[in-house]
């Protein structure tokens, strides 16, 4: 029996979550692992938007911050954290739906600039409205403990471990949903738009609506990731919604390969874990990262995962051809 793509994704992601837990020697590793899964989740949203539909957003950190700040702020007014997280996701979805219609008519770099403006706007509000958000210093986030949540179902873990498992589980779910989507009617319409919106429309695809849907979905991914980061770190600053973070999300997607959730994972892993390793050579950190980016774009424009998959497929084909040749001779 062959496994469906959704099941396969579940198995791969779940296995990697478990693998991490098996090899991590300290809480520090669990914390970095948690960040990797949170970034993977946000980047999976970029896979839907950029990889499936082919739209570039330079403002998704804005949605990330909406999720984060909703989860930070609402509990102060008595809203449970889980509900606050949902409210953040709903708020991001609503904003994406409202703003999406007019700006998604734009294409290429016009769209990039428009989304950049949106992100800046959100970042500015978060930085300036200090009475509410604590301004540039950020704010602490309380009211939810992954450790207690897991304890309530009978699993006792250290705090860092609990967050790792929780975020790994959510990232796995997010990846499975994105893969399911890609195999569905909407996903085929998305990928059709990526290649030719004129042809997609000629087949009855409402291109404007499909783009808007993808924008909303990716905004929800970013918002949930933001909420998880706020909760796991216990504090949040406006930089979560800053331009650099938006660029990071796009970079992770493109580095790994925006067309697949595996690319999202690889991109998030490299750009989250590598800086931690490179802090030893602090001075060279940015140089090394920059060199990796430039190198990838020159040698493997579709990203690491598709390039490696292609290489493996060619190897296998060559080996098969070799075997055949030996048998013939």
């Amino acid at each position: 029996m062959t496994l469906g793509p959704g099941t396969r994704t579940f198995l791969v992601f779940a296995a990697l979550v478990v693998l991490g837990a098996l090899v991590f020697p300290s809480s520090f590793f669990y914390r970095v692992g948690t960040l990797v899964w949170i970034n993977t989740l946000a980047v999976t949203g970029m896979v839907v938007l950029l990889g499936y539909v082919g739209l570039v957003s330079l403002g998704h950190a804005g949605f990330f911050a909406i999720g984060a700040y909703a989860t930070a702020l609402l509990p102060q007014y008595g809203v449970p954290s889980g509900l606050a997280m949902l409210a953040g996701a709903a708020g991001a979805a609503l904003l994406a739906a409202l703003i999406g219609r007019p700006i998604l008519k734009l294409s290429g770099y016009y769209l990039a600039i428009a989304t950049l403006g949106l992100g800046m706007l959100i970042w500015m509000v978060l930085s300036k409205e200090a009475w509410l958000t604590g301004g540039p210093d950020g704010m602490t986030v309380t009211g939810f403990s992954a450790r207690n949540l897991l304890k309530s179902v009978g699993i006792t873990l250290k705090t860092a471990e609990a967050w790792y498992w929780l975020c790994g589980a959510v990232a796995t779910l997010g990846a499975v949903l994105a893969v399911n989507l890609g195999q569905s009617s909407a996903g085929r319409a998305f990928r059709a738009i990526h290649d030719s919106d004129v042809a997609a429309a000629s087949l009855g695809v409402d291109v404007a609506r499909a783009k808007s849907a993808a924008f909303v979905i990716s905004a929800v991914y970013a918002a949930v990731a933001g909420a998880l980061l706020a909760l796991a770190n216990g504090y949040i600053t406006p930089d979560a919604g800053g331009f650099m973070h938006s660029v990071e999300l796009v970079t992770m997607a493109v580095l790994g390969g925006a067309a697949s959730v595996y690319g999202a994972l690889v991109g998030a892993l490299i750009l989250t874990a590598l800086p931690q390793v490179l802090t030893v050579f602090a001075e060279y950190e940015h140089m090394v990262l920059g060199a990796i980016m430039v190198g990838t774009m020159i040698a493997m424009r579709r990203g690491l995962v598709p390039a490696l998959a292609g290489l493996l497929a060619r190897r296998r084909a060559a080996r098969r051809a070799g075997r055949l040749a030996r048998r013939v001779s």
Binding site: A178, N180, Q183, S184, I217
Partner: peptide, 11 residues
Amino acid sequence: ERAGLLAGLFG
């Protein structure tokens, strides 16, 4: 095809 986005997401 009639299935909505959510049906697609959740397979």
